[in-house]
Amino acid sequence: MNLLHFFSENRQQILELTLEHLWLVGISTLLAACIGIPLGILSARWPAWNKPVLGTANIIQTIPSLALFGFLLPVPWLGDRADRLAILALTLYALLPIIRNTYTGIRGVDPAVVEAGRGMGLTANQLLFQVELPLASSVIVSGIRIAVVISVGLATIAAAIGAGGLGEFIFRGLAMVSNQLILAGAIPAAVLALAADFALGWLERRLRPR
């Protein structure tokens, strides 16, 4: 049985698991953006926040993913459903690039532009929303792009705790020593990562100030 044949025979399940995968990555990235962008803004605005915020995100990043899934398993409400757990873990991992790029993006705005804005009497919020965030948006999107690409890969490991996604194929394939099964998980995952990378890369270029 060749690979193409296998894919077409199992397309229903491949599609299902791909959507599940996409859902895990999508929800966790959304959550990470909702948490990470404000944290990035805070640490850009008040340097005292910078070290604890980035430090914590950094430490989270160093925890091996399998271990993090394991640690979170006994947590009451979370442990009830594997997908909750996976989403939390993926969110935590996605935080660092998003926080860091938000911080870098805002700090990277031309100081002359910020000074002109302050000097003409913009309030801190006007400066943030009209000037700093729009000018930092391409760098922030680039952080989200990194987060998504990492998450697509990491989410395959979520199958180890039964959270579903394309990792199911990979783990099953490992257990059954079936390259076809492994590729049925790995190839769609790679395609997802490339597609997300491409789409967000395009958005990033669109937003880049000239």
């Binding site: 532009v113 002109a116 000097g119 003409m120 009497g121 000037v131 100030p209």
Partner: peptide, 20 residues
């Protein structure tokens, strides 16, 4: 301070036009 700055025009060497 915001009212003060809005009542004063400010021009700098690097201009600081909003590029977007």
């Amino acid at each position: 301070v915001i009212a003060l700055r809005r009542s004063i025009g400010y021009v700098i060497q690097d201009v600081g036009l909003f590029p977007h």
